[in-house]
């Protein structure tokens, strides 16, 4: 199952000792494509495996990750038609059936492979700082009408030094994904089948060029990982880390970007091209403004008209004068009427 996670901007991906992230070769863990050195067949290897047997020629093979950046790609397995259907179904669902395919005009649908930097390895290090414990203390103090209870927050700091070792898995987008609707998306690589990225593929597929350099990605990763190892609520004063078996690689993930027009606005939807689920979508919002005015204005009008009909234009004139004085500029009466009616009864999408 593929996952692109929506999370707070600036918060990279999963880390910590999630057993599924430990790198242990469990079934269903991510796999990587490789070529048998004996017969040239295509094989798959689980992350962390050092040796494997070719299922075609039975040769025993040793696998190593050489130093340097590797590049992987996940092939799209969802067709354009399926992506379009998923987006339109999502739209109908989010708008309660009010906006369907026939209400929209699809402008653009394209498949693009989006790069992420991923860093994994074993983090070992030391962190020193202060653990902050906050307590609410109630004390009784004399007051003008006898005693009263006052709450005060007390802070206690206790220094700590801890040594940590944990498997980490961190990722960040390698280019600006704002327009793709993927800001703050992180990549979970487990249970996915990655293939070696061949730049020759770029003749036939669209890829987004990584703009963030490897050095910048590494720095950002280490900066995040240092905060990860600290106890929550603590102040870190100093730390030192080593990342063992560091693997910094680029992963290309497939997404469909669909743009459609509804009314006079353009909306975009991003669909995961590995499993077809909608990652993010802008949908036309129903403007709820004016629903109370829809009842209050007719009720007041009916009351005034029922009491004495000329009260209605008198009240309208008073409201007009009030609006003009508040705006500080003259407004033509017909424009004012349209604006007021629009503010009261201008619902819809």
């Amino acid at each position: 199952m593929a996952e692109l996670l929506q999370q707070e901007p600036g918060t990279p991906a999963v880390a910590a000792d999630d057993p599924h992230q430990s790198g242990e070769a469990v079934s269903g863990a991510e796999t990587y494509g490789m070529t048998c050195a004996a017969c040239g067949a295509s094989l798959r290897i689980h992350e962390g495996e050092r040796s494997v047997r070719c299922q075609y020629c039975n040769a025993a093979l040793y696998v190593a990750a050489p130093a340097g950046v590797r590049t992987w790609i996940l092939r799209a397995s969802v067709s354009e038609g399926a992506a379009r259907l998923a987006a339109l179904h999502h739209l109908a669902e989010k708008t309660g059936g009010a906006v369907k395919a026939r209400h929209t005009s699809i402008l653009d649908l394209r498949l693009i492979y989006v790069p992420f930097w991923r860093m994994s390895g074993r983090l070992a290090g030391r962190i020193s700082g202060d653990e902050v414990i906050r307590r609410v203390v109630e004390t009784t103090v004399p007051g003008p009408d006898g005693t009263r209870v006052v709450k005060r927050t007390e802070e206690e700091r206790s220094p700590f030094t801890k040594y940590v070792c944990k498997r980490i898995d961190w990722s960040t987008p390698a280019c600006a994904l704002r327009y793709l609707g993927l800001q703050g998306i992180a990549l979970r690589t487990r249970m996915l089948a990655w293939d070696v990225f061949d730049h020759g593929m770029r003749e036939t597929i669209h890829t987004a060029l990584p703009m963030k350099t490897a050095e910048r990605a590494r720095e950002d990763g280490y900066r995040y990982l240092a905060t990860l190892a600290a106890p929550s609520g603590s102040i870190v004063r100093s730390s030192r880390f080593d990342l063992l078996g560091e693997d910094l690689s680029i992963y290309y993930f497939p997404v469909y970007i669909l743009r459609y027009r509804h009314g006079d606005r353009i909306y975009s939807t991003t669909i995961d091209a590995s499993d077809g689920h909608v990652i993010r979508a802008d949908v036309p919002e129903r403007r709820e403004r004016g629903s109370r005015a829809l009842f209050i204005v007719p009720a007041v009008t009916a009351f005034l008209a029922g009491t004495w009909l000329p009260l209605v234009p008198i009240a309208a004139a008073a409201l007009y004068i009030y609006d003009v004085v508040r705006a500080g500029a003259p407004v033509m009466p017909h424009r004012w009427i349209v604006a007021r009616l629009g503010a009261w009864f201008g619902g819809g999408r």
Partner: peptide, 28 residues
């Protein structure tokens, strides 16, 4: 012979002394 691409390095798992095939051991 080893295969080198932009991905992983793959080579025959052989004893460097006698050339016999070494056992496949997963993560070992």
């Amino acid at each position: 012979m080893s295969m080198k691409t932009d991905g992983l390095t793959v080579q025959r798992l052989q004893c460097q002394h006698c050339g016999a095939e070494l056992p496949v051991m997963g993560r070992s």
